[in-house]
Design a protein around this nucleic acid. Structure first.
Lengths: 145, 145
DNA sequence: ACGTTACAGTTGAGACCGCAAGCATTCCCT
DNA sequence: AGGGAATGCTTGCGGTCTCAACTGTAACGT
């Protein structure tokens, strides 16, 4: 039952480290990175904003603000939907894909280092499996290599 | 290696739920709650602000702002240190202890429900043990019962 | 057709938090 | 004893995110 508190703190301590690194080296927030990553695996490298909101567990307003930055940086662009004018797609640009590629390897290496420093292989596998069962946690894959 | 992403999302989804509940029912943030909890287990129900900062993984400025709220609410009070003028203690008041007690049972029940809904006993135990190995994660105990 | 409802997205206000800079106090070294 | 480094704490600023309210579009029922 204390697992939640531990989860909370583990998140806080690991995230700050990784997020600072990502920001300094590639100018991306964790959510920026995750957005590019999710888009890169989507059909046609694009996703409805609302779908993005669901996958990243952000509110629509959070998505609007985050994409603002990615759009002005030219990493993501808006695309209208011809059949439903309410919908706007977020489309990963070529520049965005390259930026993701660049950030991906070093970021993943950092994560790997951070975890492997403290956990062994079995613990990692078991942790991953357990966390998968929690709500809102859907698998994502690496964009590296 | 995707464990980190899962950790991040698991945190986001569970925290928002629990934090909203705590805020609505008892007017406390997660960090407010954790602060009261940590103080309640401390010697003399008090802790140096800097020590609080370390245990809650917040910066000193975060602590200052958070305690502001708890102090005006009368749940925590300032105490000077006679031997070192730099130090200020945060002391849990009687009111604070009661408020913690009130919040604790329902909050813990929520956590328990949330986790048990998705994980079995073994998974919980293993998760807890694994997370303990990550940096910055120190055990805390319930204040309920 | 028309009104109601649901949905996608945006915007303003406000909460929370970290960083950098600053102040006061204490420690340590010579 | 005196000067510099370290420590505890606070404050201004900026970033990120949510919530509530709003606009425009689509779907549905009558």
């Amino acid at each position: 039952m204390h697992a939640f508190t531990r989860l909370l703190r583990a998140h806080a301590s690991t995230t700050r480290l990784l997020s600072a690194e990502l920001l300094e080296q590639h100018g991306l927030t964790i959510n920026d990175y995750e957005t590019l990553l999710v888009l890169s695996h989507a059909d046609g490298q694009r996703l409805k904003r609302i779908e993005l909101s669901r996958q990243l567990l952000l509110t629509p307003s959070g998505i609007t603000r985050m994409l603002e930055g990615l759009e002005t940086a030219g990493l993501v662009e808006r695309q209208a939907c011809p059949t439903d004018l309410r919908i706007t797609y977020a489309h990963l640009t070529e520049t965005g894909a390259q930026r993701l590629q660049a950030a991906s390897c070093s970021h993943i290496a950092s994560i790997k280092t951070l975890f492997e420093e403290h956990l062994d292989e079995n613990e990692l596998a078991s942790l991953s499996k357990t966390l998968d069962k929690l709500p809102g946690v859907t698998g994502t894959h690496s964009a590296c290599g």
